[in-house]
Design a protein around this nucleic acid. Structure first.
Length: 574
DNA sequence: GATTACTCAAGCAA
DNA sequence: CTTGCTTGAGTAAT
């Protein structure tokens, strides 16, 4: 099993990393209602009290056992990574909202606290091995918003440090090997040309300063890069950018594996000596995520020449969607998506809306301004709003009640999200592997609404007629409840109550034979990156909810969106 | 083993 | 909306 490195120290191959075990939880949950001084003070006290529950020591040293992992079980590892990241992000959000209740000066950084708590609970991945090469379940192009997030899934081990390395067991600390580097714009001598990077070693800088104040030394990370060069060992590369649609203002893109092919001492721009390392990207990998990110941003202002002859339509919704849906095919002559009537919303039979005016008046809320947690719509959602202030879905539920046509609150009410329609620049595109597919030209944040399934609503007695004519139906009851995974923090919060099951069976199907929209082009996957959340807003008939599609992870531009239809691959026609 | 030096964060106020 | 200041966590080295 051992593929020995040229270094003389073993790097194991094909070892299945052990999955972190769950440990008992410390109860620490400070819920806040109201914002008067007394409440604030009690929150402060309870928060301080909860901090004392945290053990002072949290020593869980990293392993020095190097391993290469070939991911034989992609679905498993992808799910594991996603679950870890959902837990991290949900916990970070929870902690951030708790900390905001504290007076300034007493707030802790939610990104760090969330990471620390997960580490304490044994929820960081791959702590028992140091992985050389790619991390199973992490794909080239994956995007992260926090350095700590990179640590939880073992892509990079330092909260600030740019070079991560391991000293192999028995090497007496003299032969460190680099595992990953982060290019974040902190060194003036760096030169990033994509496939080739001239990377400056670390050190010689004062805290937070760009220019050097002392020469660098060939030790620690710098020595590790030197050793990696001599032994031809690959390392992971992450690039950091400023990005205004990130909660941290930064985005970190995993750009795949590189090798150090050259190194030399250099005078450096500041006059203090630096070490430089030439990194070359290993060929045969997926395209670089940071390049795609940059290209997608360029596409905001112009249609790139290279893509010009692929467009079948700039907007296949013909202006019906709030954001245009482009149609792209540079593979063959298929124009199938142009042959249908584009409808933005499902076409309901009139019985769905058969409610008396009195019922509608009772159902809607009467808030004049933005709704409060006490309003009728919040109560219907279990006393809380399903979205945060920028429209991110906080937690999947069997059914969400958005404020709707019967409510008096303004269109700006934060409980109106999916009803407003598509916000990202979506594209239906021809793919060699999945036929037609859907992707976004914008970054889609985890929890963001993407689109709704439209089509003609058919009741059960009509299905057979549609099928016999060769029509296509989407069955809502088959979607396997992936919404349960979204916002699930049962791993870190002791009193987490899992959401209930959908009570009523959904006995309708969406007939997308003639009328359809972008959603029915979503590909099927057992390891999906989007999921369906049922929503009501324009009627209160729970048997006919809207099928709203949300992102269950951060999706980089141009990556295909995929959903779990709960069906066998080949039985799906659309 | 406890302590310290080191680090291409991140939040916030000005 | 940049800039500087402050507080930081985890790791490897001491």
């Amino acid at each position: 099993m051992e593929s020995s490195s040229e270094l003389g120290f073993p790097i194991n191959g094909d070892v299945k990393p052990k999955i972190a075990s769950k440990r008992p939880l410390l109860g620490e949950s400070t819920k806040v209602e109201g914002d008067d001084d007394e409440a604030l003070f009690s929150v402060y006290l309870s928060a301080v009290a909860s901090r004392e529950l945290v053990p002072a020591t949290n020593k869980q040293p990293r392993s020095d056992d190097m391993v290469r992992v070939s991911s034989s079980d992609d679905v498993f590892y992808r799910s594991l990574v996603r679950r870890t990241r959902i837990t991290y992000d949900s916990l970070r959000y929870l902690i951030a909202s708790e900390e905001r209740q504290l007076p300034p000066g007493h707030r802790r950084r939610a990104d760090l606290v969330a990471g620390a708590r997960m580490k304490r609970l044994g929820l960081w991945l791959h702590r028992d091995k140091r992985i050389i090469g790619s991390i199973p379940g992490v794909a080239v192009g994956d995007i992260f918003f926090y350095r700590v997030e990179l640590m939880t899934v073992a892509v990079h081990g330092h909260i600030q440090g740019g070079i991560d390395y391991v000293c192999p067991r028995g090497s007496d600390g003299r032969f460190p090997v680099a595992t990953s580097v982060v290019l974040s714009g902190g060194y003036e001598d760096n030169d990033d040309r994509g496939d080739v990077i001239i990377y400056t070693g670390s050190g010689g800088r004062k805290k937070n300063e760009v220019s050097l104040t002392a020469p660098q030394r060939l030790s620690r990370g710098n020595l590790a890069l030197e050793m990696s060069k001599e032994n031809g060992i690959e390392l992971r590369v992450v690039r950091g950018f400023t990005f205004d649609r990130s909660p941290s203002g930064r985005v970190y893109v995993y750009d795949g594996l590189y090798k150090v092919i050259d190194s030399w001492p250099d005078p450096g721009k500041s006059g203090f000596g630096v070490y430089k390392f030439k990194l070359l990207r290993i060929t045969g990998q997926e395209p670089m995520g940071s390049v795609i990110l940059q290209t997608a941003m360029d596409l905001k202002t112009k249609i790139l020449k290279s893509r010009l002859n692929g467009y079948l339509s700039i907007d296949m919704s013909n202006g019906l969607e709030r954001s245009p849906i482009s149609l792209f095919n540079d593979i063959d002559c298929d124009k199938e998506p142009l042959l249908f009537e584009y409808v933005v919303r499902p076409v309901y039979p009139s019985i769905v809306f058969q409610e008396t005016m009195e019922m509608r008046r009772r159902n809607g809320c009467r808030c004049i301004e933005n709704c409060s947690p006490r309003c009728a719509c919040a109560k219907r959602n279990g006393g809380e709003f399903p979205y945060d202030s920028i429209g991110l879905l906080l937690r999947g539920k069997p059914l969400i009640y958005e404020c709707g046509t019967s409510c008096r609150c303004p269109a700006s009410c934060p409980n109106r999200v999916s009803q407003k329609g598509v916000r990202h620049r979506l594209e239906v595109f021809r793919s060699k592997t999945t036929g037609w597919g859907v992707r976004s030209l914008d970054v889609v944040r985890a929890g963001e609404f993407i689109c709704e399934f439209s089509g003609k609503v058919r009741t059960e007695d009509q299905w057979e007629a549609v099928n016999s004519k060769g029509g296509s139906l989407v069955y809502p009851s088959l979607f396997p409840g992936r919404w349960r995974e979204w916002g699930d923090i049962s791993d870190v919060v002791a009193d987490y109550k899992p959401p209930g099951f959908t009570s009523s069976d959904l006995n309708f199907a969406l007939d997308v034979s003639k009328k359809r929209n972008v959603a029915c082009y979503l590909s099927h996957s057992m390891s999906p990156n989007v999921f369906v959340q049922m929503v009501l807003y324009d009627h209160y008939n729970e048997k006919f909810p809207h099928l709203m599609v949300f992102a269950m992870e951060n999706i980089p531009p141009m990556r295909e969106l995929s959903i779990d239809y709960g069906i066998e691959m080949d039985s799906f026609a659309c």
